[in-house]
Design a protein around this nucleic acid. Structure first.
Length: 472
RNA sequence: GGCCCUAUCGUCUAGUGGCUAGGACAGCGCCCUCUCACGGCGUAAACAGGGGUUCGACUCCCCUUGGGGCUACCA
């Protein structure tokens, strides 16, 4: 049978990194097995679910290239299905209406807690006759509880091995707030069966939900899928990653200029590693190589520095024209007017980028010379007169680059470097570079000269000479 | 508190009874170099503790300790 897996986020917030990683592992597993990857929107929480979040989930997955194989299901569209099973459970006496108030429940809970007991529902409404309960349910507010069996449940988790729970500790859990209002643990069981899910791959935070779900599967006569609980992604405090420590939603990373390739590579390495020891892993390789044996059991701290490094890596290895398109949304639109120039700037600066928008800070001088202190032109205490002479000399050389020589990087380098060799590299190159860029840190003067062009370069050197005159 | 999961450098990890415990990020140093960045080289840094099993344990078992998750009319 071909495996069918699902990613089942609830649209109650933007897609978090933890969730995306779960989606990614499901997707990789499906692709590895030649199975199906499905998407199911778990929007049973009517108060918190929002269409906007649902869209952002779709957008996020699409951005990463995680594609699904069938039309996404939405739990709110499947209410009739849940109702059918709810009625069946009620009829068979495997579930019952409960009329206890939240206050009563809370009191019971506190009492149990103070005695050091596992808090669980005592079963007060279990014994209400079915007919009476049905009658009361028509006007009294109620919930529907599942009659939890009291045996032990074991299952073999693909990453953790055999795990055993005692159902007796769970109590009769609430599976619906009403016939038309199913709750998570119940809806999941129904959907996984109806959608013929074979493997449930999800975060470890769901481990203790698994026995409850298996108990319902057994009562309903469903088959139990194979489970794989992934280690959690942790914050720097080693607790489940939360908004507290970083903007942990995929949307935030996208907006801060991370590349999908970097995000994917980073996430696939959180809790999994390829057979051969390496850090740069493409999704093709991950799909080919995926194996649950290589999935880590313990939580992985989100390593921001490594993400930065990966992002920088992918940034500098992207072809300039592709990169230029990606950067365009983050920078002033006028920079892109001269497409050729922009591409050259991107190509030159890309090894300095850690995020897409970094170009804005790094490359502004190509489009407008920033103001700078005249003293910046001075190389390591060299006399002002020497600096000025060198700059004038370079200006003449630049002006005189013969017309038959193409304005090429190589030609410029030939002329400039011969001047530098003669008069001292630092004494020539530093002031030249500052004159051209107005900055203490930038790419080399030859590269800037080439991109700026003869005319603009000369103008900037004149400006520098003017500044030097002002200097004491 | 109860239940469950878990434990190798700061972090991500390799390791499946015998290794000088390897790699990567971050750190530090050096080289390249007008600066920044890239790149290259090097360095520091870990098997939580205690019992077993075994000729031999990072590897297997148990306990302790630490960390985490769950314990909702959220998912």
């Amino acid at each position: 049978m071909t495996p069918r897996v699902r990613f089942a986020p609830s649209p109650t917030g933007y897609l978090s990194i933890g969730n995306v990683r779960t989606a990614l592992f499901n997707w990789i597993f499906a692709r590895h097995e030649g199975g199906k990857f499905l998407l199911r929107i778990e929007d049973t929480d009517k108060e918190r679910s929002k269409k906007e979040y649902e869209e952002s989930i779709i957008d996020g997955l699409t951005w990463l290239g995680i594609d699904w194989d069938e039309e996404p299901e939405r739990q709110s569209d499947r209410l009739a299905i849940y109702e059918k099973y709810l009625k069946r459970l009620l009829d068979e006496g495997r579930a019952y209406f409960c009329f206890c108030t939240p206050d009563e429940l809370e009191a019971e809970r506190q009492a149990q807690l103070s005695q050091g007991l596992q808090p669980k529902y005592g079963g007060r409404c279990r014994s209400i006759p079915k007919e009476e309960a049905a009658r009361r349910a028509e006007k009294e507010s109620h919930v529907i509880r599942f009659k939890m069996p009291s045996h032990t449940v074991s299952f073999t988790d693909l990453v953790r091995g055999k795990v055993t729970f005692d159902l007796d500790l769970m109590g009769d859990i609430i599976i619906a707030k009403g016939l038309d209002a199913p709750l998570y643990n119940f809806a999941v069981v129904i959907d996984d069966e109806e959608m013929a899910i074979t493997h449930v791959i999800r975060g470890e935070d769901h481990l203790s939900n698994t026995p409850k779900q298996i108990a319902m599967q057994e009562v309903l006569g469903f088959k139990t899928p194979v489970y794989a609980h992934l280690p959690l992604i942790l914050g720097p405090d080693k607790k489940k990653l939360s908004k507290r420590y970083l903007d942990a939603s995929l949307k935030d990373f996208k907006e801060r200029g991370y590349l999908p390739e970097a995000m994917l590579n980073f996430m696939v390495l959180l809790g999994w590693h390829p057979t051969v020891d390496k850090e740069i892993v493409s999704m093709d390789e991950a799909v080919k190589d995926f194996n649950f044996k290589k999935v880590q059991k313990s939580g992985a701290v989100f390593n921001q520095e490594k993400l930065e490094w990966l992002n920088a890596y992918y940034l500098k290895n992207l072809p300039a024209d592709v990169l230029a398109k990606q950067i365009a949304p983050f920078i002033p639109p006028e920079w892109v007017k001269d497409e050729k120039k922009f591409k050259e700037v991107v190509d030159l600066e890309k090894e300095r980028l850690r995020h897409l928008p970094d170009l804005k800070e790094l490359a502004g001088f190509f489009f407008a010379l920033p103001d700078y202190q005249p003293s910046l032109l001075i190389w390591k205490g060299a006399p002002k007169s020497v600096i000025a002479d060198n700059l004038s000399f370079v200006a003449n050389v630049v002006r005189g680059i013969p017309n038959h020589e193409r304005w090429s990087r190589d030609a410029i380098e030939k002329y400039i470097m011969s001047v530098a060799a003669e008069k001292g590299r630092g004494e020539v190159l530093w002031p030249l570079r500052v004159a051209l860029s107005g900055k203490d840190a930038s790419p080399g003067p030859v590269e800037i000269l080439y991109i700026l062009g003869k005319e603009e370069s000369l103008r900037r050197i004149e400006t520098a000479l003017g500044k030097l005159d002002l200097l004491q």
